[in-house]
Computed example of a mutant assay.
Amino acid sequence: MSRASSFERATLDPFYHELRTSLTLIQTCTDLLMHADQIGQADLRNFLQIIRRGGTRIDRLVRDYILLAKGEYGVLSEEKIAQPTSVLPPLNLALLEVRAESHDRGVEVVSDLPETMPLVLANPDHLRLIIERLLSVALRFVRNAGDAVVVQTRTMPDSVAVVFTVEGAPLTDEDLPRIFDRFFVPQNLPLSREQHGLGLDLPVVKSLVELYGGKVAIERLAKGNVFAFTIPRAEPETSRS
């Protein structure tokens, strides 16, 4: 069986399932709105929010599927466009965006980031996507109010690392071998099915990180997990005079 055929068989069925689920919600809400003689503002707002969430979910599903397909067919490298850039601006922006939601859940996001770091070689848009998705995955494993997510960076001679250490539900022995499989979602996540995502975030992160010669590492702890990635530096220390 060809690599392309394997990719299609492994992804098309769950892709269609997720697509149908979101479309059904949108169609149901639309039908109710079209045939309702009277509807209150609160109900109207709820229906519109469901439609918007469904549309956002479909958009993300399609974009992720296209990105993974490009990687499988060997054309993602055309979007590589590696240039010197910093991990700090997209990391600080991602933290700013998640802190309000995390606060509502009683989750503390702790970070102690340096003011400057060595530049890495990556497409800034891809780097932003990597950070946003990996942080999003890490937060899904937080189980209880009062748990924390610790965000750190590390500078090594030839690369830069971003590390998210999460207090929460540890990955199981069954999860670890499949954690990068497309559409795989660990069973012990504390959030609802809608909140835990489509199971494409980690495959997308892995595909993009490896595109630039980096690595993704996931480690299970006694009471949590570590999610990390490395990206090569634009100017490794070994190349300096």
Rank of each mutant, 00 (worst) to 15 (best):
F141T: 05
V149K: 00
I130G: 15
D147C: 08
R133N: 15
L96Y: 09
E97W: 11
L119H: 13
E115S: 12
L127C: 02
V107D: 00
H126D: 12
R140D: 13
R140V: 11
L139V: 00
L95R: 01
A122W: 07
E97N: 12
E101S: 10
L119Y: 11
L119D: 14
S111P: 07
N123S: 00
L113V: 05
V151P: 02
P124D: 00
A138P: 04
V107K: 01
Q152A: 12
L95Q: 05
R140T: 14
L139S: 02
D104P: 00
D125I: 15
L139K: 08
A94R: 05
V107T: 15
V120S: 05
S111L: 01
V109W: 11
A100V: 04
L135T: 08
R133D: 15
T116H: 07
R99Q: 13
A148G: 07
L127H: 06
P114S: 09
H126I: 12
L96P: 07
L129F: 01
V149Q: 00
A148Y: 04
F141H: 14
V142R: 13
F141S: 10
L96S: 13
L119I: 09
I131P: 05
L95G: 09
E97L: 14
R143W: 07
P124C: 03
G106V: 11
I130F: 03
E108M: 14
G106T: 14
R143A: 04
V151I: 08
A138N: 06
M117E: 06
D147R: 04
A122V: 10
P114M: 06
P118K: 12
R105N: 11
D104R: 01
L121S: 13
Q152H: 12
T116N: 03
E132Q: 11
R140W: 01
R105E: 15
E97S: 11
I131T: 10
S136F: 09
I131H: 03
L113D: 02
L127S: 07
P114L: 04
R143S: 04
A122G: 06
D125A: 13
V137K: 15
M117G: 01
E132K: 08
I130Y: 02
V149I: 07
L121V: 05
A145K: 10
G146W: 15
G106A: 10
D147F: 05
H126P: 05
V150D: 14
R128S: 10
R105P: 06
D147V: 02
L95T: 03
V151W: 01
L134E: 07
R140L: 14
